[in-house]
Design a protein around this nucleic acid. Structure first.
Lengths: 126, 126
DNA sequence: GGCTTGTATAAGGCTTGACTTATAGAAGCG
DNA sequence: CGCTTCTATAAGTCAAGCCTTATACAAGCC
């Protein structure tokens, strides 16, 4: 599943937005999402699975709870697709400034580490 | 159709990438896409329709040709979704610098104009 | 151990969207 | 005009993904 397919689902986007405020248990997320979208607990759990398996979220167990958190690397990678188009709407910045603003220089290693997951170039075309 | 659903398709992403190098006719695009993905001419035309109808591409007729070009506004808007997560991978910039880098200040009017299209808040949640 | 709470998986139905082939429409040329 | 080129639309098939209900599993408590 490509990154943009993952982000194509409004429920998964919402889950990530909630997680952006800090980690949360499956139950907490479930209550928020169920109240907002009116879907069942298993449906939420299935979305969490997708986020896990595609690397957009990480989990850790704490007692009976499962605590989810945002994993930034795949998000940063998806966002990088827009690089080819930024010149259409961003004011000119010198190259170094742009790199700094984009975080490419300081985050290269992190991106490499985190993308050890998969989804690198799964299809024919990326 | 949400922006990320549009971008979820690898063929549509590829079309936009090709168009990033400048406008091209449906036929030129068709030849590239067909050779790369092995799909039919109508399939390409249908993808072009989606890009047109969602505002990601514009068309103008020139004789018998139909010339497509990138329309940056919806792309910029889709990219803006990542704003909530940039702090995870971007180095700190003072607020003004960030706004400049993002192009929000100088492009606000363009974004407003172009989003007259639709897709603003089509579903219950955005 | 048995109950309760928290979470995940299984199985099946339904919808959506992307493809195909066939065909239509529009512009230019002889 | 009739033919060719370029592009779009129509209709139908098929697969993928998201949902539901039912159920399983895991941890803590009595």
């Amino acid at each position: 599943m490509h990154a943009f397919d993952v982000l194509g689902d409004p429920i998964r986007r919402r889950i990530l937005e909630v997680l952006a405020d800090g980690e949360g248990s499956a139950g907490e997320l479930g209550r928020v999402i169920q109240s907002e979208f009116g879907i069942s607990q298993p449906a939420v759990s299935q979305h969490l699975r997708v986020l896990r398996e595609t690397g957009f979220a990480t989990v850790r167990s704490e007692g009976v709870r499962r605590l989810y958190a945002v994993n930034p690397a795949p998000l940063a990678q998806a966002d990088a697709w827009f690089d080819a188009f930024r010149r259409f709407w961003e004011p000119k910045l010198d190259a170094l400034g742009t790199e700094l603003a984009r975080g490419r220089l300081t985050q290269k290693k992190d991106a490499a580490k985190a993308s050890a997951h998969d989804e690198e170039t799964p299809e024919t075309h990326e």
